[in-house]
Write a protein that binds this DNA or RNA. Structure first.
Lengths: 192, 192
DNA sequence: CGATGAATTGAAACTTGTCAACGGCAGTGG
DNA sequence: CCACTGCCGTTGACAAGTTTCAATTCATCG
């Protein structure tokens, strides 16, 4: 739950997560919260070009990371041009993900958002296998809600509904078993 | 209204807008539409690393652009390392904008979304002056709605309300005059 | 085993969406 | 030159999905 970087702070450093998961958070003055993404192993944080961070990053479990100063990053980029290529690649991929998330937030129903989220999580960190049915959710319902632009209650109700309909099972509060990945994929795409 | 690139098409080219404005569009199978951004002079299109475009780009007025093949882009990047730096900068800025838009789509009310949009537009292309009160909207109400995650009707109603409350004036259908920029900025930030 | 925070569930309220009608403007063709 | 046609925008009434508020249950941890 500790803060790694805070929105508005001078952007002095640059991070690479080596273990655990962090949430990237943007806040409105009255406390409304939007989580723009979750960063786990390998993720880069603090790409912002401007003087200050445009979002906060907070640990949701035990997080280990590498920290570089911006000056050091500049050196690295000058010495290893491939690094720059890699960063551009990373940024482009994040941009694609961000656009996908805009579609979700702007146009999908609560049900479709949950299905999208669950299927994305189920594929998370499973590069070779098709997709393992069971997986853990490191974040709370509140985090999921703020990521999907919903309330805790709607997240809870939607999960319950998907469970009673047989699409998923919820063995423990932080574990999900996907029973019909195909159906959920269709649901996520807005075809059902 | 012509399509510059189509979502899903093989990403063979890379674009730089030289005049006019295009909308970047993502679609759901049933026709629901999300506009992830508007690209005008100087904007780069087609940064995607993957094989195919992740969104469509469509002209909303007369658009001129430069087109490079991906191979040519690679050559350019190899010959001019500064180009890579510049692209990374551009991508980072777009990422920040995308996160801001996620906050808007996930957590702001219709009124706050309209205020955010209007103030962003009013600052668009006015680098030196504080911010000119009057500006044109090149896009239709439908485009605004799909950009803000609302319906045409809600956009129309919200604009009318802001007008009757004296925050803005609407001399013609595609022109806006901001009467209280400070109030609208607060509204956009969610402080009112 | 009690305490605290998280998650679930229910009922009511509200913002926004849906459906429908109307008005305005532009381009077309008689 | 003017009616016709079609698209875009506005406005109204109603419906609906999601939020809000409140109460209860569950899990974790000292």
């Amino acid at each position: 739950g500790t803060t790694i970087v805070a929105e508005g702070d001078p952007a002095t450093h640059f991070f690479n997560i080596s273990s655990g998961t962090a949430r990237m958070v943007k806040l409105l003055p009255d406390g409304r919260r939007q989580i723009t993404g979750f960063a786990s192993v390998g993720h880069f944080l603090g790409l912002a070009v401007s003087d200050s961070y445009s979002f906060s990053a907070e640990a949701i479990d035990t997080v280990h990371y590498c920290r570089f100063s911006r000056a050091r990053l500049r050196e690295l980029l000058d010495d290893y041009p491939a690094m720059e290529k890699r960063l551009l690649e990373v940024a482009s991929n994040e941009l694609v993900a961000a656009q996908e998330q805009m579609l979700l937030l702007g146009r999908k129903t609560a049900r479709e958002r949950m299905a999208s989220f669950l299927m994305a999580q189920s594929r998370q960190g499973v590069p070779c296998q098709q997709s393992r049915a069971k997986f853990g959710l490191p974040m709370t319902r509140g985090d999921i809600a703020d990521y999907l632009g919903l309330t805790i209650e709607t997240v809870s109700r939607t999960l319950t509904k998907l469970k009673t309909e047989g699409y998923i099972a919820i063995p423990t509060i932080s574990e999900i078993v996907v029973r019909s990945p195909e159906a959920l994929d269709e649901m996520a795409a807005g075809e059902a």
